[in-house]
Amino acid sequence: MPTVSPESGSRRGRPNDPERRDRIIDACLEVIARVGVAGTSHRKVAAEAGVPLGAMTYYFAGMSDLLHASFTRFATTISDRFERRMATVDSEDAAKAAVIAIILDDVFGDNRELVLSHELCTLAARDPAYRSITSAWMRRSRAALEHHFDPETARMLDALIEGLTIHRALDAEARDPREVEEAVARITARPGSATRRSR
């Protein structure tokens, strides 16, 4: 796939529906959540968005352009939610509680978001053009955590948040929420894990 820019909008001209591009992106995410990237096509997205098939090429140079814009929106939405959660805390204990809440409640609010995350990671693993999205996502997560923890601890917590969330979502048996509390406690118990900003 060619390298594409996020949110590019491929064609010149004046759109007669300024919200159409956003609807197409939202529709693309819904289609991906149902059938995966491999099953997503311009025709399916156009039908989901309620737009003429020909409108797809007005806004996007091709499927790669559409996928990049759609996954950029998805990752940005998750990152915004993450940052809002971490911005509400003002102490180390509150920051630990926020991390626990992110794992138990926030990261993937439902199965749709879990599927979209896996589809993005699979795509990024195969095509470097999409790694800019996953890299930006991780940078924002670590930056939010670094307001309360040192950079190394923030990196560990970021990996824990994603990994443990996926484990909990995909395990056939219910997991004890206390394992999340224990994991966060162990990582943040490292000497120097808290930054001055949260003390």
Rank of each mutant, 00 (worst) to 15 (best):
I103W: 05
S79N: 10
F71H: 08
N111Y: 13
D80K: 09
S70E: 05
R81E: 06
T165A: 13
L170E: 15
A174T: 12
L123G: 12
D176I: 14
T76Q: 10
L123R: 11
S41Q: 11
K96S: 11
L114K: 09
A144T: 07
R190Y: 07
L67C: 07
A144N: 10
P18R: 08
A95V: 13
V99P: 01
I102M: 01
P177W: 06
D176M: 13
L164N: 06
E92P: 09
R186P: 00
V107H: 02
D158H: 00
V4H: 08
V107M: 07
S135L: 09
M138W: 12
R85N: 02
S10R: 12
P18K: 05
R196M: 05
P177N: 02
A159K: 03
I78L: 12
A49E: 01
P52G: 12
S10M: 09
L120F: 09
L145H: 05
V35I: 04
E173K: 14
R34C: 03
A185C: 04
S5N: 13
D26N: 06
L67N: 05
D26M: 01
E181S: 12
T57C: 09
I32L: 06
A143K: 03
M1I: 13
P2I: 02
A47R: 14
D93R: 14
R81P: 01
R126G: 15
L104C: 10
A189D: 07
V99F: 06
H42W: 09
H42E: 09
N111F: 11
S117M: 12
N16Y: 11
R14E: 10
F74H: 07
C121M: 15
I103K: 02
E179S: 13
R14L: 15
S132M: 14
S193P: 03
S41Y: 06
G163T: 05
A94E: 15
T76Y: 09
L164F: 06
E173G: 11
G9V: 06
R140C: 05
K96N: 15
A98T: 14
R178F: 13
R168E: 09
D22I: 01
G39I: 00
L164P: 02
S117L: 12
D17I: 08
L145G: 07
R178T: 13
A125E: 08
S135T: 15
R43F: 11
C121S: 13
P2L: 07
R73Y: 09
A69Q: 05
T88Y: 08
G163R: 00
A49G: 03
S41G: 08
D106Y: 06
C28S: 04
A189N: 08
S64F: 03
D17K: 13
S79D: 10
S91G: 07
G39Q: 02
R84P: 04
I103N: 05
N16C: 11
R34L: 04
M1N: 10
S91M: 05
V45R: 01
K96R: 15
A144D: 08
F71L: 07
I100F: 02
T134S: 11
M138L: 09
A159V: 06
Y58N: 14
M63A: 10
R112W: 03
T134H: 03
R12I: 04
F71W: 07
N111M: 11
P151S: 09
E48I: 04
A154Y: 00
Y58H: 15
E19H: 08
A136H: 11
